[in-house]
Write a protein that binds this DNA or RNA. Structure first.
Length: 104
DNA sequence: GACATGACCGCAC
DNA sequence: AGTGCGGCCATGT
């Protein structure tokens, strides 16, 4: 089922990603106590309103890449927001070693 | 109810 | 280090 509790947990975790840090879909799922729901997290993100309060841009793939097709509009939008927070993208890819949350 | 698709992940080659 | 493949879960056709 698509219980509200699942979406809410995901929203909550995403909402707790600190400024200037990022987390992968799998990490979000794991922290939301929903291991294996990495894909579902993406589904929830897609359903977010355009003007959402959630820091959706801090959610990346496990390898640090943006989940959108490179150079697409959404891709550029997300890249912009990340750089706005002082996150350095190298070749459109974020160093998870440096910015991954949780960690340190 | 089978089959395809998606803002995914991890391990094996 | 790049690619492939199976595994994941919920939706849509």
């Amino acid at each position: 089922m698509d219980e509200p509790s699942k979406r809410e947990k995901i929203w909550q975790v995403v909402n707790q990603i600190p400024h200037g840090r990022v987390a992968s879909y799998g990490t979000i799922a794991r922290l939301a106590e929903l291991p294996g729901y990495a894909r579902y997290v993406g589904h929830v993100m897609k359903g977010l309103p355009a003007a959402t309060k959630l820091p959706w841009h801090r959610v990346l793939r496990a390898n640090g890449q943006i989940a959108f097709p490179p150079h697409s509009e959404a891709w550029k939008r997300q890249k912009e927001l990340l750089e706005n927070e002082g996150i350095n993208l190298l070749k459109g890819r974020v160093s998870m070693r440096t910015y991954a949350w949780p960690g340190d």
